[in-house]
Design a protein around this nucleic acid. Sequence first.
DNA 1: TAGATTGTTAATCGATTAACAATC
DNA 2: TAGATTGTTAATCGATTAACAATC
Lengths: 207, 207
Amino acid sequence: MIPFPAINRLCALYRLLCDLQESGVERISSADLGKKLGVGAHNIRKDIAFLGVSSSSASGYDIKGLKQLISEKFEFNTEKKACIVGLGRLGTAIMERKDLCGGEFHIIAGFDSNINRLETISSSISLYPAYSITEVVRRLRIELAIIAVPACVAQDVADKLIDGGIKGILNFAPVIVKLDNKEIFIKNMDISGELRVLSAQIKNSIR
Amino acid sequence: MIPFPAINRLCALYRLLCDLQESGVERISSADLGKKLGVGAHNIRKDIAFLGVSSSSASGYDIKGLKQLISEKFEFNTEKKACIVGLGRLGTAIMERKDLCGGEFHIIAGFDSNINRLETISSSISLYPAYSITEVVRRLRIELAIIAVPACVAQDVADKLIDGGIKGILNFAPVIVKLDNKEIFIKNMDISGELRVLSAQIKNSIR
DNA sequence: TAGATTGTTAATCGATTAACAATC
DNA sequence: TAGATTGTTAATCGATTAACAATC
């Protein structure tokens, strides 16, 4: 079991490696990786150690190989199915994002409680009424969900998703969703909440 | 100086207190607060201790008083000016959010590099071309910024914002922005990146 | 007063940082 | 080989958890 902070950094590292590979770099040292990610070289090596490396040292890491290593550990190769609940402005904006529609992730379903709205949205993604969340998530074996509904219905939506067997949730509603199931992961993306944290940090840093 | 994890929890606590107050609750114990936030009662009391409490114990906290205490510590009473850079689908969706337009925060400016697009957007918020970011941020004394531009221009946008004297940034671009100024705070809201972290957690939790 | 709940100090836990021998 | 860089163990650091006396 890799500790969460390390998982976070390894994911950032993975993205960096993809970028580096695209710009044609082939090898890089832990010192340079650390510099680019804003962490110590120690930290990079420690994190990589969690992957259970076998091959060893000389002149930095082979980017392709390291990327492959992370990819295998976390199964980044297999495409993950995702869905969006709440097709208001934010939900549809996220649905349209290209980085969520190819490669690693694939948004294959959208849900909204307003049937009329479903008819007005033109999208290549299949749309369903909110009452069918549990059934559709289970049938299509959707692993990840993005919640973009008002705060007052977020918990209800999350419960339906969990009933359907969802594994991970990205929650844009400004509310803390209860899970009580340790096997399900959630990341809160509360925009106004994060602005509040930023302004608290700003105030806290003065003097 | 309050440690970051504590600031985070105090902000979540603040929101919870607002909700409780609205539902008419007047007093609550650290145990109950902890239950609602999913942390230990110890943790709640420790965090509150950072606020430098003077008054003391008996039967839980007075919600109004505690809210006031957090509010004063972090200056949540004074309205903070914010802006959005990048008025694509995501940027405009965020701009329209009601929870960002009243009360604590006030979005008073929107920027986009596409002048034609600026003309097509109808909004009560003042819109400006991207080249004027530094000037407008400085003139209007804007403290917070939300970046919703493509990854390739995010660093450039951040630099302009920092030149204008911005204090905090919420970054939706899937890229790590360099700050090198310790007085500026940033929170990354990389949607596909967070989905990747979730799927890594899911994989990591198995067995 | 007695019970409950706090504020605060001490103990535990885990992650980050440092150091260094092993290795290419 | 010599220099550079890793993998890994040990030391430090900080936050969380526990405990308990103080207090309403």
